[in-house]
């Protein structure tokens, strides 16, 4: 090997190494920050692990919204088959209402209670998260077009 070839080889190997390390860091970070979406029915078939951040979506059940007169809310998310009890502290999006679609992000505090850190804002009253539409379709409960 001449010196030029050797130099070039070192350069290529070094860049490859940096590239691999960078990609690894990025992918590991991606894996740690993925938030999965579940419907109440999917959750009923899973083992519940507390602390794991996830998103849950469905309809807000009729007559299930409770408010303690201040910023604490509780409500039930349903996909018309299974239900989940949710608590939330904060300001609800304007379009949050009974029988409308909703997506919350948070984690379980115990096996039957989900604490939402965020109730996701929606942009219009007809909007329903596609995940919820799919879930309702899968369960045969979809009534839209």
């Amino acid at each position: 090997m001449t010196k030029a070839v050797k130099n070039r080889l070192i350069k290529i190997l070094l860049s490859l190494l940096i590239l691999i390390v960078a990609v690894l860091i990025i992918i590991l970070n991606l894996r740690d920050n993925i938030v999965y979406f579940y419907t109440p029915t999917e959750l009923s078939q899973m083992e519940i692990s507390e602390k794991k951040i996830m998103r849950v979506g469905g309809l807000v059940k009729k007559d299930s919204i409770n408010n303690d007169g201040s910023k604490n809310f509780s409500f039930i998310i349903t996909d018309k088959v299974n239900e989940i009890n949710v608590i939330f502290q904060g300001i609800l999006p304007n379009l949050f209402a009974e029988e409308k679609g909703v997506v919350v992000e948070g984690s379980y505090v115990r096996e039957t209670l989900f604490r939402a850190d965020k109730v996701l804002a929606k942009h219009d009253e007809n909007y329903m998260p596609p995940e919820v539409i799919n879930a309702l379709k899968d369960d045969g409960k979809w009534q839209g077009q």
Binding site: I25, I26, N29, L30, D32, N33, I34, V35, Y36, F37, I53, R55, E131
Partner: peptide
């Protein structure tokens, strides 16, 4: 792209948290 890709292949919905972008 990753969430779109997973949704297409595995039909699993997911989102990537902002922390991923900040940390990397």
């Amino acid at each position: 792209i990753y969430p779109l890709f997973i949704d297409l292949i595995l039909e699993k919905s997911l989102t990537v948290g902002p922390q991923y972008y900040v940390m990397t």
